[in-house]
Design a protein around this nucleic acid. Sequence first.
DNA 1: GGAACTCGCCAC
DNA 2: AAACGTGGCGAGTTCC
Length: 458
Amino acid sequence: MIKIEATTADAYRLFHEGALALARAEREGIRVDVEYSEQKKKHLERKIEYHQKQLEETKLYRQWNHVYKGKTNIHSNQQLARILYKNMKIEPVKTTETGQGATDEEALRRLDIPGLDLILSIRKLSKIKNTYLGAFTREQFNGFIHPSFNLHNVRTYRSSSEGPNFQNIPKRDKESMKICRRAILPRPGHMLIEADFSALEVNISECYHKDPVMMKYLLDDKSDMHLDMAKQIFIMPDMQKSIPTHAILRQAAKNGFVFPQFYGDYYGNNAHSLCEWTKLSRGRWKKGQGLELPDGSHISNHFLSKGIKSFDQFTEHMKRVEDDFWNRRFKEYGRWKKKSVQDYRKRGWLKTHTGFTCSGLMRDNEISNYPIQGSAFHCLLFTFIELDKIAQREKWKSKIVGQIHDSILLDADPVELGRIKEALQTIVKEILPNAWRWIIVPLEIDVEEYGVDLPWVS
DNA sequence: GGAACTCGCCAC
DNA sequence: AAACGTGGCGAGTTCC
């Protein structure tokens, strides 16, 4: 008889071996360019001072300084909130968790007051200087940082990282990415390589809900879930991924609807987020507004022609899209979510395919997210452990140095590159699916290579 | 002077 | 009916 269900003992063994493999990566460490980091910090400091000087010329700052005098601190959001929402009597467009007027990027951008753009620039530069470059120089020892990869902190049985956190170095914002990742180097003569699972969480979700429509999207290269959702959301049946504007709308559907829905978001927030992407207002729409389409017309014209004339009508439209998403398109996924909640309510706990137990009070969204998020990371950890075993056995000069939930970072000897790629494919295509029979979809891992003696910048 | 809190923001 | 999952960390602030 083939054993299908993983036990707590299996889960324990995974984390025991995982802790040992991660500890070896921690001891090896990641090389940082200390000289560069110190120089760049000084450069950023000068830029921050320059922006601060400009800020001091604004009406906003004069009002601020009138209230706080010698205690004025442009980094204090509490002071900023008081100036904006009390002294200037602006009605907050958004509040924080505790009900105070928000001063985050979205709130400040909507106000459009001279000087707030400078505050945002200063925040961005300070973040790079203090959170990333500052941490690299503070934590480095002999030119190497040794972040800890923890397995005991996360409710879903994912990992976390600290000292410094290696799992949140900027990537999306190109400028921040270049400045921060320029500081991460391979050992002399080596190259950094990053092995990423593609769409890991979506693939692992399939192993739980077994939705046939989702399965088709995952197996058929020609089908594209995000493009299909973009067609439905924007009512454009003839959309093509190769047309740049359509690619933007596809991206909007992916990041403004599909992924948030998987995490438990609802159509109301989706409508707001999609209007950010398409540059449409929260009121009534007129011709000539929002994103420009390939034919030179604006997206508002298109929506008007389809009978959607305002943000409120668009929200109603998104409500129908959401209903269709869970009750028709991905009906089995929707059913699985409901059943998971019922089962948890009855028992008070749930188990992952990898043998871990999640117990304690959980909200509906958490019940369906936890097993997916955990098991997805466990596929990465399994791969990490097996790769480490091979590296030890074959005495690689290449070092496994880090991990970011669905990817592994190696500091590789170029001579060994072919062997590393081969080993990764063997693990992901043979060893992993053979060991865990619950994996019912083909998993893919891609390797991104950075240059010899060059930093972690693409 | 340190602990604990809020807020904002980076990653997956 | 209501409505976004998991973390770490810096700065400012408050409390002891």
